[in-house]
Nucleic acid binder design. Sequence first.
DNA 1: ACTTGGCACTCGGGAACACAGAGTGCTAGA
DNA 2: TCTAGCACTCTGTGTTCCCGAGTGCCAAGT
Lengths: 337, 337
Amino acid sequence: MLDDRKLAVLRAIVEDYVSTNEPVGSKALAERHNLKVSPATVRNDMAALEEDGYITQPHTSAGRVPTDKGYRLFVDRLSQVKPLSGAERRAIETFLAGAVDLDDVVTRTVRLLAQLTRQVAVVQYPTLTRSTVRHVELVPLSERRVMLVLITNTGRVEQRVIELPEVVEDTRIAHLRAVLNSCLDGCGLSSVPEQVADLPERLPVEDRPVVATILSVLLETLVERHDEKIVFAGAANLAGADFTTGLRDVLEALEEQVVLMRLLGETSPDIPSALTVRIGSENPYLHGTSIVATGYGSGDKQLARLGVLGPTRMDYPVTMGAVRAVARYVSQILAAS
Amino acid sequence: MLDDRKLAVLRAIVEDYVSTNEPVGSKALAERHNLKVSPATVRNDMAALEEDGYITQPHTSAGRVPTDKGYRLFVDRLSQVKPLSGAERRAIETFLAGAVDLDDVVTRTVRLLAQLTRQVAVVQYPTLTRSTVRHVELVPLSERRVMLVLITNTGRVEQRVIELPEVVEDTRIAHLRAVLNSCLDGCGLSSVPEQVADLPERLPVEDRPVVATILSVLLETLVERHDEKIVFAGAANLAGADFTTGLRDVLEALEEQVVLMRLLGETSPDIPSALTVRIGSENPYLHGTSIVATGYGSGDKQLARLGVLGPTRMDYPVTMGAVRAVARYVSQILAAS
DNA sequence: ACTTGGCACTCGGGAACACAGAGTGCTAGA
DNA sequence: TCTAGCACTCTGTGTTCCCGAGTGCCAAGT
């Protein structure tokens, strides 16, 4: 059904269409890629490919354009991820190495990825739930207010101001801090609730209201940040491209954390570092766009996801190469810090 | 030269053009606004206004369109800021009141402003330099690493990981923390450098290298964040509007912190809470767009700026009302926390 | 059984053209 | 000083026409 030459034709169509953004005809195809066959033969193959739904023509007597199914086949079987050039790799490395804190790492990563791919880059902040507590700090602000600061092993810092139910002097605060730390230090964020469950009972009665207040804020912080923060960059790259779905819709999706989250998708449980590619209508939330994403994180734990979003007509090999490389480098950086 | 009726005509032209986005002709003008005069008279006035450069026609025999100069006159003399409706005020208040920390305040503010004005909203994070130190925290991470956390009275938290030149046990860290706090608590960020200048000399010799390292990071943090973080929202609102300068340029400017900073401009020293309006070419960095901005901050201190960016053809009274109102509310919130 | 050249057909998009309508400037009169 | 009328000038739209790229199919060639 699909012999080698038909696949070669499909590959050529995808490559040409991606680079020219114009429907590609049989003649130009036979010329540019030296297929050693005549345009007529190519036409026959094209008819077969169209029959099978891999390509389509915008209107009668125009060239062919890949369908989503065609891109899918191209990505799965006809292309291989294109590695970055040495210069690019070095640029990534030095650029990311300059980051001073987690915020900075994420910001730099997203910009880098946008610039590298000339698409919209999307990066999810490392999930709290998979990281562990490195330190809990209680800072007295006034008689009845303290600030809770939670520091994780990924360098993330969360803070909340807490109104206490009663006046608490600093020494008691210091004591509570010590208790909290001995209880939570190094424990995974997801196990924090069980760790602190019986904490009030182990403390003197008079401390319990205060502890209860603090704990409720602490737990709230964990839950709240469970659905994670996501940032994007490179929206300017949308200006040139034309989407089947309106530009407005894309921009709106980018500003909706929830939608973005869905777009990035779940890490595949078996191979978390695998590249996920969603093409056009495969993507349920934003038609006419494609997404290349992957998980990243320090060591073997995948902490979050990053990727790029662009028109269906994108250079998949290059984009996939860039996403994979950036994910690796940022994982390194996170592991080191 | 410019009698009352001519001004009324200009006002009518601006209002009509803003609402219809089409060049406005003499006939429609005389009808819609009851000017009590005939179209012919209006035409004479229009000729005069065009002579003076307040309006222009895209081509012969089309209606008139306000020039930047025309908008300027309109904003300065022909319009008054339109206050928000009661429902809108309440919505703002409840929406902002739900914020849990500074990040959240800023995020909510920028979204709110974007939604309210249907333009791109821009909010600068409150400046560190004008705020004061509320607490300095040193958190031991490992033998030779500590995390420096700086908490300001605006609720902002800055953190940095510090590599120490030698192994330092926790009690020494605790002591240093106490020293730093007694030295810096409540002092303005801009006066931190002088406050800590003689600190090493006042400490035992063996502590000096460690202190020097910590202080250098601390000072670096202050300088680095001096040029402030800026966020925006509502880019989707650009999709409809058409700019004389390309959409791409606008999006690029939005992602460039530095440009954005310049766009928001400086707070006028005398009346920091005054609204700044830059119209079209008055804006040196991004032609064809207008900016309505103002300072905000707790109490009488202006901490930062916020505003919106939109096409020159925008509804200035409404936009100005929204910007002013949001600035007031967010100032209140900051003062309270 | 494929491949190739030839040929008629289709359809999109650009150029040429006409035309209606909105808007103007000007002049003469109230 | 305002108004009414009138001739003029454009843009935008709809129509028509034609070119050319590209196709599908058929018959001949290997």
